[in-house]
Nucleic acid binder design. Structure first.
Lengths: 132, 132
DNA sequence: AGATAAGTTGACGTTGACGTAAGCATAACG
DNA sequence: CGTTATGCTTACGTCAACGTCAACTTATCT
């Protein structure tokens, strides 16, 4: 790590993704590593963005959804109206995430309930068969 | 609604999905509507399952993930060992959902923070341009 | 110089989750 | 009885998100 940048293979190891994935994300303008000659060098900014990308994916957001959200994290170099649009998108996503959060809580309770019901059913039949 | 079953178009209206989607889910054994002649009739059980399917999708679970989870909701007609496997899968999913829940909370806080930072930046430049 | 490793750019393949279009059945309506 | 609505099956198309070569460059080691 000469400076503060990482090669593609270091990135792959650190984030458990393939080179193809990183190049793909770059082609979709989710990442923008600098170039030293041909080689890509990923900065701290790229790492921060990749963290957000992978997190977003875990919640079922599309890459396009995520791309829009990412803009929020480099606000400043934007025009007023563009910034307002970005903020609007972000507020919508935030609402969506809050809904998901609440819904996930319900789902967790339900599944948890189902599991203990299942466990009890298992326990009742356990008397028949002795332990292996 | 003669009895307690719904036609495919009633289902589509109720859940905002297309017929194609319902037939597709049936082909993947996520739903199993009864047949009256050719026509599909969706029972309360199908509706309950579809609710869980759509919920699962919102959290980024694949249809195959969901199919395994759904088995938990008709436990009883299963063998002991099969039931144990199902419970094991369910516990894993539950853990995954708990992780997501916590992570989502973090993400919400972060995004919320970014938004207010953005709003403040907007407010500071607001003095320049008068209201439209 | 030769070989090996790490990386690059196309370009085509694949998988999941449906969309879409064609052709046929059947029931109800006028 | 024709047609309109609703639904069915079969099959090919599509889009996102990568995977998988193939062929080439660039740096490094011996």
């Amino acid at each position: 790590m000469t400076d503060d940048v990482m090669t593609i293979s270091e990135m792959c190891a650190a984030f458990e993704v393939t080179p193809r994935t990183l190049r793909f994300y770059e082609s979709k303008e989710l990442l923008s590593p600098i170039r030293k000659g041909q080689k890509r060098l990923f900065t701290r900014r790229d790492r921060a963005r990749l963290t957000l990308i992978l997190r977003g994916k875990r919640f079922g957001f599309s890459l396009e959804d995520i791309r829009q959200l990412l803009d929020l994290y480099h606000l400043g170099d934007q025009q007023r109206t563009q910034m307002q649009r970005t903020l609007a998108v972000a507020r919508e996503r935030l609402e969506e995430m809050r809904r998901k959060h609440a819904e996930l809580e319900t789902a967790i309770e339900e599944l948890s309930q189902q599991i203990s019901t299942g466990e009890q059913a298992l326990a009742r039949t356990a008397a028949d068969e002795p332990e292996a």
